[in-house]
């Protein structure tokens, strides 16, 4: 496998300076609605170390995808706007870059794969064309060299007869094969960070298992960091080193993956674990979280989970709850020190 030495060199320098690849600080994102702006990501902070996989888990509307789109600067503005925060990558705040400077980073030093590979590819061009395009956007090499590299990449991600498959159009690929092709494209320029936004959600479980295995392998081979967005605690348990749990736009807990599942600090994390069908044996009743997620347009500053929380007491719904550091973990819950929450079974 030929490696791009330039990318490797810069990476070596960055990590020597500072053991952080990406640092998201106090990120807030808002979207225009009928009456003013609604804050969909509220004061989110986390960082990624070299070769680490950080998972962001949350349900629909938790803000996990908006967070990842913000890092890529892909939030449509308007209606969206980044209201506050910094996203520091390799020593520079991505939010301060011009669109042109950002384009040099996207697909080169930071890549992204999505839930729906079919919508992320152009149906009118062959897979080969799109890979060559992606490579030549960032590398000054000939079309022939780029085609060579594209075939290598398809081979690397486990697509049989790669040279022939380069000539295929997206519709000629199955869902699993398309996601492999997307991963090949994301790896084209040897990125330092791969953002995977629900990369296996649209796939069958047996194909999901193949793709997760592939992501694990290429992460190792390329020495990348990975930000892994998912709603599925099973998938998170499988691939992540650390996890951030998001609820209603806020990070409510972040922790090492083993500690999080062994003993969650936030009642929402506990609720999610208990609601998983695997938590309950045989044909017993499942344990839902009562109620629904709040309407973000009308959330107040206090604990957003309080109306659904089985551990809530008087006071939980009245005070602003900050994200508190507890050892190497963080939690946003007033009662965190008093609760002994139930972990994964």
């Amino acid at each position: 496998m030929s490696r791009h030495t330039i990318a490797n060199d810069t990476r070596a320098n960055d990590t020597a300076d500072d053991e952080i690849v990406l640092s998201v600080r106090n990120l807030s994102v808002e979207f225009a609605t009928g009456n003013g702006y609604t804050r969909v990501v509220d004061d989110v902070s986390f960082s990624l170390r070299p070769r680490e996989t950080m998972g962001i888990v949350g349900e629909s509307g938790s803000g996990k995808s908006v967070t990842s789109m913000s890092i890529m600067r892909l939030i449509p503005t308007p209606p969206g706007r980044i209201a506050n925060g910094e996203i520091v990558f390799a020593g520079q705040d991505l939010l301060q870059l011009s669109e042109l400077e950002m384009r040099r980073i996207r697909g080169d030093r930071i890549s992204m794969i999505f839930q729906e590979p079919l919508t992320a590819l152009n149906p009118a061009y062959t897979i080969g064309n799109q890979l060559v395009e992606a490579i030549r956007t960032h590398r000054e090499i000939t079309r022939k060299q780029a085609t060579e590299r594209a075939a290598e990449l398809l081979d690397l991600v486990g697509i049989p007869s790669p040279r022939q498959r380069l000539l295929d159009y997206p519709h000629q690929f199955s869902g699993g094969m398309l996601q492999r092709a997307m991963i090949a494209g994301a790896l084209a320029c040897d990125p330092e960070l791969l953002i995977a936004d629900e990369p296996t959600t649209a796939l069958d479980v047996t194909i999901q298992a193949q793709i997760l295995e592939l992501l694990r392998r290429v992460q190792e081979e390329f020495g990348m960091s990975m930000l892994f967005i998912s709603h599925d605690l099973g998938v998170i348990a499988d691939v992540c080193d650390r996890v951030g749990v998001m609820y209603a736009g806020q990070l409510v807990e972040s922790s090492d993956v083993f500690e999080l599942f062994a003993r969650p600090f936030h009642p929402y994390t506990e609720g999610l674990l208990r609601a998983m069908p695997q938590h309950t044996a045989g044909s017993e009743e499942l344990v839902p979280i009562p109620g629904t997620t709040p309407d973000l347009a009308s959330v107040e500053a206090q604990c957003r989970f309080e109306p659904r929380c089985r551990h809530a007491v008087a006071g939980c719904g009245e005070t602003v709850v900050p994200l508190e550091t507890v050892g190497a973990r963080e939690v946003r819950c007033l009662r965190a020190h008093h609760l002994e929450l139930e972990g994964a079974s």
Binding site: S174, G176, M177, D204, A209, I236, F258, F261, A262
Partner: peptide, 27 residues
């Protein structure tokens, strides 16, 4: 058996110890 082994278990300790059956190829 394959379907069962492919469902990720929401527990990193168990999940990473499990034997996974990866199916050959595509359906």
């Amino acid at each position: 058996e394959t379907l069962l082994s492919a469902i990720p278990v929401p527990n990193p300790v168990t999940q990473r110890r499990r034997e996974r059956i990866l199916l050959r190829g595509e359906p």
